[in-house]
């Protein structure tokens, strides 16, 4: 589902497995609880270990983007999968948040 790590005003959410309408609310709750506790300036949503995603994943990203924007925070997406990138582009998410193919080291550390 999701594992969140917080450090230096950055919360990274490592999503895994399948993201659909059934599982999305549980992931959302987890990430939102972390945003609430750590009040990060940057939220990174890492889809590297996601094996399946439908448009429920888009709602998940948009919702978190809105939440972060309220506190002037940034959101970034890491997504190596071309199919999921296509769905994200369909929603115009690439115009709102940076979509990277892989984690960069300085963010990772």
């Amino acid at each position: 589902m999701v594992r969140c790590e917080a450090s230096n005003e950055v919360v990274t959410a490592y999503l895994c497995g399948e993201i659909d309408h059934h599982i999305a609310p549980k992931i959302r709750e987890d990430i939102d609880a972390n945003i609430q506790s750590y009040r990060p300036k940057l939220l990174i949503l890492d889809f590297s270990d996601v094996s399946f995603m439908d448009s429920s994943g888009i709602g998940l990203i948009m919702g978190r983007y809105r939440k972060m924007s309220l506190s002037k925070g940034k959101t970034e997406v890491v997504c190596p999968c071309a199919r999921m990138q296509k769905i994200m582009q369909m929603a115009g998410i690439d115009r709102l948040v940076e979509i990277r193919k892989e984690q960069t080291d300085e963010v990772n550390k």
């Binding site: 999305a24 609310p25 448009s55 429920s56 888009i58 709602g59 998940l60 919702g63 769905i87 369909m90």
Partner: peptide, 21 residues
């Protein structure tokens, strides 16, 4: 229509667009 939804805020309105693509 893309992005049209009567669902909640967390719904993207992309279901049919994804099916069509």
């Amino acid at each position: 229509e893309p992005l049209f939804t009567t669902g909640s805020e967390e719904r993207s309105g992309l279901g049919f667009s994804v099916m069509e693509s």
